[in-house]
């Protein structure tokens, strides 16, 4: 074979190789486009609603049932629980009745469960989480977004503290009594419970439903993104803008809640007064500026993040690990503390 011939053959082969390569890519793209147009996609339905004094966002997808109907049912459930547990205004609320009763009241199973759960968390967090601060919260004006906020005098606070604290709550099976005119405010835990119930309802309608509920930054996962990817959740930078993130965690299941001093607050003479109170002082807790807790259920994450916020980084917060929860706390100087297990959620 002459040299020129060999070169020609070589060139031809290179051309053939290139064509094969390009054809392969074109076929893949064609298949891709065809698939795109030939099948519907698992769309996520998003529904926003104001519940529990915050914007609740339900994002859900289901192959079996209409995701819109699931989202509606979930919001219905959350609204039911909101009016049931609203402590201050709704005349039909169980908690309202309890707070304005003169003697012991027999409550339903659900309410008894939630009150017992609250007291359990009060005990293990040495009162950092406290469901009986209603008087104090009302005094500061955090009972409703429409109430005028003000800094009470120390006498007023001392008086409110006399009628506050979980020690004033007694529960015997379903019989609840409040001593010293204390008021229950299950706000720190009722929202989490309601979201958990909504997620459970979604799972009951379609056990393979996926998505999440974002109740003002407290999040419960229904199922992984498109059934297999974890949701990428940003933890807000407590001293940054609304879209500034200080960390990222990945959750395919479970719940995450954050308590921060930037959520609801007012300022007087340059001092920030926020809505999470230290039951010992009667003033807003100052040990940390943000506390995030990951747990299996949002009811637990909610209560524990409030407690972690009040306590600051401490032995009790480190002990959350024993309850199956992981925590991250940012102290007043901006220093970040994490339980060992928390780090595991920061990957994948």
């Amino acid at each position: 074979m002459r040299k020129a011939d060999r070169k020609d053959v070589l060139k031809k082969r290179i051309v053939i190789q290139s064509i094969v390569f390009l054809t392969a890519i074109l076929i893949f793209l064609a298949v891709a486009l065809w698939m795109n147009f030939s099948r519907g996609s698992t769309a996520y339905v998003e529904k926003d609603e104001f519940v529990f004094g915050t914007l609740v966002r339900v994002v859900v997808s289901s192959e079996k049932r209409d995701p819109k109907a699931i989202a509606d049912a979930m919001i219905q459930e959350m609204k039911r629980l909101e009016s049931k547990f609203h402590p201050y205004h709704d005349g039909n609320s169980v908690i309202f009745k309890l707070n304005h009763a003169t003697g012991p009241v027999t409550v339903d199973e659900e309410t008894a469960f939630l009150i017992s759960k609250s007291l359990y968390y009060s005990e293990i967090t040495a009162g950092a989480f406290d469901p009986a601060l209603g008087r104090l919260i009302k005094l500061w004006g955090f009972d409703s977004p429409d109430t005028k906020k003000r800094v009470p005098t120390s006498e007023e606070i001392a008086k409110a503290l006399e009628s506050s604290g979980y020690a004033n709550v007694e529960i015997h099976s379903k019989e609840v009594s409040l001593k010293n005119h204390a008021w229950l405010d299950l706000g720190g835990i009722a929202k989490g419970y309601a979201v958990d119930q909504a997620v459970r309802l979604a799972k009951k309608i379609d056990e393979n439903a996926t998505g999440f509920v974002d109740a003002g930054g407290d999040i419960a996962i229904i199922g992984p993104k498109f059934g297999q990817f974890p949701w990428k959740i940003g933890i807000r930078d407590p001293r940054g803008g609304p879209q500034d993130i200080i960390g990222v965690v990945y959750l395919s299941e479970g719940a995450i809640a954050t308590s921060g001093d930037y959520e609801r607050y007012f300022e007087v003479d340059g001092v920030r007064y926020h809505h999470i109170f230290d039951s010992k002082t009667g003033y807003p807790a100052r040990k940390s500026i943000s506390a995030t807790v990951i747990a299996e259920k949002l009811v637990d994450a909610d209560a524990l993040s409030t407690a972690a916020f009040v306590l600051g980084w401490s032995k009790i917060v480190e002990g959350f690990v024993g309850l199956g929860a992981q925590a991250m706390v940012i102290d007043a100087e901006g220093k970040i503390y994490k339980t060992k297990g928390f780090v595991a959620y920061e990957k994948e």
């Binding site: 914007l55 999440f212 999040i219 959740i233 940003g234 993130i245 990222v248 995450i256 930037y262």
Partner: peptide, 26 residues
């Protein structure tokens, strides 16, 4: 941006990349 008392929600909608954050906890 959410205004709870007035029930206002302002959203800036637009395509975000898959690598970005899905939800923010705050």
């Amino acid at each position: 941006i959410v205004c709870v008392p007035n029930k206002i929600v302002v959203k800036v909608e637009g395509k975000t990349k898959a690598s970005e954050i899905d939800i923010v906890t705050w």
